[in-house]
Simulated assay, not measured.
Amino acid sequence: MMTNGTNEQPVHDIEAMRQRGVPDHVGVIMDGNGRWAKQRDLPRTDGHTRGEEALFDAVEGALEVGLEWMTVYAFSTENWKRPPSEVAFIMWFNRDLLLRRADELDAREVRVRFIGRQKRPIPKSLLKIMDETERRTAHHRRLTLQIAFNYGGRAELVDAARALAEDVKAGRLQPGRVNEKSISSRLYSPDAPDVDLLVRTSGERRLSNFMLWEAAYAELVFDDVLWPDFRRTHLFDAIEEFQKRTRRFGAV
């Protein structure tokens, strides 16, 4: 990282980062919306609203540095336990966000995918817009933006196990052929590469049930910044940290 001589803000050499090799897949746990709002005596929902700017600046940064896959944790299977008013706000906010941003994502050649249990209690109107956004952007390959919505890593593995059990019962798969490949092929996004870099904001240091299978060998970077204040420079910092590490995958 470099700094300029005037405002001491980080200036990243994007071309050098590209040449060193960027991760195939970055996962982001977008944490800290509620705390950001609380620090400012604002409703928690204001933190979610401000998080939109952070997300799309991160997307711009991903495009700038040449990432091909990025998965963001938008709403977990456990988040239904939050106050009903906050849950309802998140549902309608995400619907409106897609309506506002679909043109922008399409113009930037971003393929949008949703991973998770795409069924009730997600409102039908939101499910419809999610499906329309996926179909509209399905042909793009510049960046695949996966939005983990009503997602849980354990739920994903349970769903994969159920699919395996059904295939074994129907005779489509022999029990002896159950292996890592057969499990991976039944995950929500089987063509996605494993997560190389997982970034979590807000200073918390845990996975919170996010991409447990796919992030088995991910490099973990924890950033103290609260999500609404996250910008592409934070993403670049995490990528540069990733590039400094040696990955052995269990070997010497």
Rank of each mutant, 00 (worst) to 15 (best):
R100F: 02
K169S: 14
V65C: 04
R206T: 10
V59A: 02
R113C: 10
V87N: 09
A102L: 15
D13N: 13
I239T: 10
V221I: 13
L99N: 15
M211E: 13
L235Q: 11
E15I: 12
F210Q: 01
M70V: 01
F242D: 06
E180P: 05
Q19T: 09
G203A: 08
S76R: 13
P43S: 09
N79I: 09
D229Y: 00
L126F: 08
E86F: 04
I90D: 11
R136I: 12
L127K: 10
S189P: 00
P23D: 04
T137I: 12
N33V: 01
A165Q: 13
V11K: 08
V112R: 03
K119Y: 08
S202Q: 02
R50C: 03
W92C: 00
A216N: 12
F249K: 07
K119A: 14
L235H: 04
D194L: 14
L173C: 07
N94C: 15
R117D: 12
L173R: 15
T144V: 08
S208E: 11
R120I: 06
E78R: 10
D13Y: 00
S125W: 10
T144F: 09
V195G: 11
R141G: 10
W80I: 03
A192I: 10
H234D: 04
P84G: 13
Y151F: 13
W213S: 07
F236D: 04
R35G: 03
V87A: 13
S184W: 05
Y73E: 10
T71W: 00
A165M: 15
R100I: 00
L63C: 03
G47I: 01
M2F: 06
D196F: 07
T49S: 09
D57F: 00
D31W: 05
P23T: 01
L143F: 06
I239N: 02
A138R: 14
L143Q: 07
Q39E: 03
V110I: 14
R232D: 00
S189E: 15
K119S: 08
W227L: 04
V28P: 06
L198Y: 05
F89Y: 15
A161D: 05
L145W: 01
Q243V: 10
D103N: 13
M130D: 02
R40G: 04
G152Y: 08
A138Y: 07
F93E: 13
T6C: 07
M130A: 12
R111M: 05
E180T: 11
P23H: 02
